[in-house]
């Protein structure tokens, strides 16, 4: 179980004169959930489809479940689950019919009825796919991706177009799978999704994998400053801050303090407030930069390199 499920070294893809992937190196161990982030057109789908064997790379090495995707055969595909970014559905069939039909392709499929339930399509199980809403169609996509009980699942923006409850349902399905030791490669534009599901995230910008790390650490996130903010109201209005602290005026009149030591700052503020007869710091909050803040900064940095 220690071998890499996915190994990519210097993977390149050129479309005519345009280089969509400029040498991507990535190893994903079996059992890991890895999420690829990146702006539109960064090359996520290209990379994923190269690993799935749908597109040919123009350079580099790739191994997926021990095989080069270029010559993956049916036995290899039986171990993959694929949820493409966009793909038509068999419009005249119902979700249950399609899922049952796909189940017959695999040596060891899951129970089709159960899978339809898992993706939250019980109510629409006998409706024609043509009549399903966008989010419901997406659930059929997911059902088709997992019906073969794959060892490795590729999810290309699986929850785009889903309502919040639907997204959580899908996350649940993915967690179920990973708890069984399966590997997942997920692309998404939802940072919370990556944070919820993935052990590691990779940010791909203009065909280059610029950062890889855990969602908590990527981009130096755990070393970045935290922000302590509160409202200087009532007895605190206009009072000078304790020695050594300086605040700037933030949103909605809040006082904001950037610090590497938020715990110490809050302790100092509490004592300071008490000395002015207040035992509450109104609207107190401590925030760290979200994954989204870090991600947006990385993209901005790549556009205006220092």
């Amino acid at each position: 179980m220690t071998a890499a499920a996915i190994h990519a070294a210097g993977v390149r893809k050129r479309y005519g004169d345009f280089e969509a992937l400029k040498g991507v190196d990535l190893d994903i161990p079996a059992g890991e959930v890895f999420s690829l982030l990146g702006p539109n057109g960064a090359g996520k789908t290209t990379f994923v489809e190269i690993l799935e064997g749908f597109r040919d790379r123009t350079g580099g090495e790739a191994t997926v479940l021990g095989r080069d995707p270029r010559d993956g055969d049916a036995a290899w595909r039986a171990r993959l689950g694929i949820v493409p970014q966009s793909s038509g559905l068999f419009e005249a069939l119902t979700p249950v019919e399609v899922v049952r039909h796909f189940a017959t392709f695999y040596p060891d499929p899951l129970d089709p009825e159960r899978v339809v339930g898992m993706v939250g399509l019980d109510e629409k199980r006998n409706a024609r796919c043509k009549s399903l809403s966008g989010g419901q169609k997406r659930r059929v996509d997911l059902a088709l991706g997992i019906i073969g009980n794959p060892d490795l699942i590729f999810l290309d923006e699986p929850t785009t177009g889903l309502d919040p409850q639907g997204r959580r349902q899908i996350w649940e399905v993915v967690r179920n799978f990973t708890s069984l030791g399966k590997t997942v490669l997920l692309t998404t534009h939802y940072l919370d999704e990556a944070e919820q599901l993935a052990a590691r995230v990779g940010v791909i910008i203009k065909g280059e994998l610029v950062e890889v790390g855990s969602p908590r650490e990527i981009g130096g996130r755990q070393r970045a400053t935290a922000r302590v903010s509160f409202a200087a109201r009532g007895g605190l209005a206009g009072k000078p801050l304790p020695e050594g602290l300086s605040a700037h005026a933030g949103n909605a009149g809040l006082a904001e303090i950037e610090t590497f030591e938020p715990t110490r700052v809050v302790a100092a503020l509490t004592a300071w407030a008490a000395s002015h007869g207040e035992d509450e710091l109104p609207e107190l909050s401590i925030t760290r930069p979200s994954l989204e803040d870090i991600y947006l900064r990385m993209i901005a940095d790549s556009e205006h390199p220092a």
Binding site: F54, L80, I82, P84, S87, G88, L89, F90, G148
Partner: peptide
């Protein structure tokens, strides 16, 4: 139609011969 709507793409990602 199946080619252009990605249905073949979908089928060819499965072990269907």
């Amino acid at each position: 139609l199946e080619q252009h709507e990605g249905l073949l793409h979908r089928l060819s990602g499965t072990p269907l011969p």
